[in-house]
Nucleic acid binder design. Sequence first.
DNA 1: ATGTGTTCCTGTCCGC
DNA 2: TGCGGACAGGAACACA
Length: 288
Amino acid sequence: MPELPEVETVRRGLEPVLAGRVLAHVDQRRPDLRWPLPERFAERLAGRRVTGLGRRSKYMLIGLEADDRSPEETWIVHLGMSGRILVSGAMLGEFHHAAPGPGKHDHVIVTTDRGDVVTYNDARRFGARDLWPTAGLEAHPLLAGLGPEPLGNAFSGTALAAAFAGKRAPVKAALLDQRVVAGLGNIYVCEALHRAGISPKRLAGSLSRSRIERLAGEVVSTLNDAIAAGGSSLRDYRQADGELGYFQHSFRVYDREGAPCPTQGCGGTIRRIVQSGRSTFHCAGCQR
DNA sequence: ATGTGTTCCTGTCCGC
DNA sequence: TGCGGACAGGAACACA
């Protein structure tokens, strides 16, 4: 499911449910996601009050107040490919599961002191979670190597040009590299490259400065447009509040093989190719 | 040191 | 309908 816009959408949906609340009950179910569960995970969460929800790249960061056993900590959540978070309970005025009991892939179920139920579900279990002192969060192994936030001040054409310098990888691969810029995935890389009129096959280090400037701007506008639409819903993915994101209707190339290129006057056809084992969608007519 | 291929896991879809 | 294969929004890891 999730690239940066989807994680941001989930964060915004979850914030009013969790911020300021106490995690009254934590039901830790299947322990093995991508890595084994941290020690005493459920016990360390239970009873803690949530200070707020942040995000770094595709990681959602749930801040927890200190208690008599632990300092301030952050519950780090990564949704992997198939992770989702569902909310049910009083706040939404409904209980979303008709069938009683947790689903097969519901791995963590948290009940807040207000009675809302937050369920972390991940069929493929590529997701990750950890609990880490907030004071040293940037040193967490999963966060330490990340490049700049594309919607933050540190990201710019200058920054992107510096990261691309000397790179022999195709620009598609370079943008997927989380050390270059953090938070893009397969969909938004394809979309931003199309908006920028750049071939995904072009080597990152060979792009002119002006084209990199354009690309940096299109990365930002693509992500902002997607966040404004509530992210993209593929298959049955749902937002935290149960609404569907609708940016998938704005895809210009992703999953549109064979469709006419939407660029005005281009007349090309969207093609699918494979780059480092992953689908790339592009138009050879207007992406050079 | 970089760049690419493989791998983790389950579900879904498509062709036969 | 069933079955096999391809493919899926990620990214760590092994290897050239």
